[in-house]
Design a binder for these strands. Structure first.
Lengths: 126, 126
DNA sequence: CTTAAGATTAACCATATGGTTAATTAACTA
DNA sequence: TAGTTAATTAACCATATGGTTAATCTTAAG
């Protein structure tokens, strides 16, 4: 998955890895600390692999402290992904507006004695 | 990949699919229209599969118009993912602030040694 | 009725992903 | 030195992903 944006989204596409980032958002943690919530459901090498994915995506960095590997979140690596998504924000906000309009319309219709009927129109021609 | 957030991020983790969403952000398009930019590099069934991924993630919907399948963006499906990422925004802004502080520090140091030099201009963002 | 257009499905293949257990490395500790 | 702790690497396995070609389906157009 060559491009950076794909690497980022791919790294986020796993609940274990997102939980690890959530944990790191509260501060540094070494591997066994990060692993602790998951050791009931997966092994330590599996955790190592997840951390490798996050590291390759640039979302975390590992330091060294004796045998420990304190991991640190690099929230900056989320910026490009967030920016990509922000281009769509106006679109989903627009759809929320349309929902709001619909709610208003229904509400108005209920209040009126002669509700306006909406014609259903078959729209041709994209 | 059971949970919705993973489905969404996973769907976004491919440049072809992101390009398709970008196209759909400009309005409806049927499958062959969406496929057109990629037919030099992949077959139509491959396009169908990508669209299936987007559809399963709820990011697009397909209608029917004779043999055509006009696809529509559902930007709303990005909201949860965007919200998840927004929790990290303050963190990367904090790191930018630290960068800003660093730049100021360096700049101040330069000004003290070379009082008449112009301030360094920060590189623009896209 | 036959053919063409638009798209999907089926069958298949190579590689990636997410997990395992066992072995190994690295650094502290008794 | 021997043992323990923290983490990684190796080898392996099952399933998912992203692609292919060939066949199929559906609807429109001759």
């Amino acid at each position: 998955m060559r491009d950076q944006l794909s690497l980022t989204f791919s790294a986020l596409a796993d609940p274990t890895r997102r939980a690890m980032l959530d944990r790191l958002a509260k501060g540094q943690a070494n591997v066994s600390e990060l692993a602790e919530p998951f050791l009931g459901s997966m092994s330590l090498p599996a955790v190592t692999k997840h951390l490798k994915v996050l590291e390759n995506a640039g979302l975390i960095t590992k330091k060294q402290d004796a045998q420990r590997r304190p991991c640190e979140l690099n929230a900056d690596a989320l910026k490009d992904a967030a920016e990509w998504m922000s281009h769509y924000q106006e679109l989903w906000e627009a759809s929320l507006d349309r929902l709001g309009d619909y709610v208003k319309t229904v509400s108005a219709a209920q209040n009126s004695t002669q509700p306006k009927t909406k014609k259903k129109r078959k729209t041709r021609k994209s």
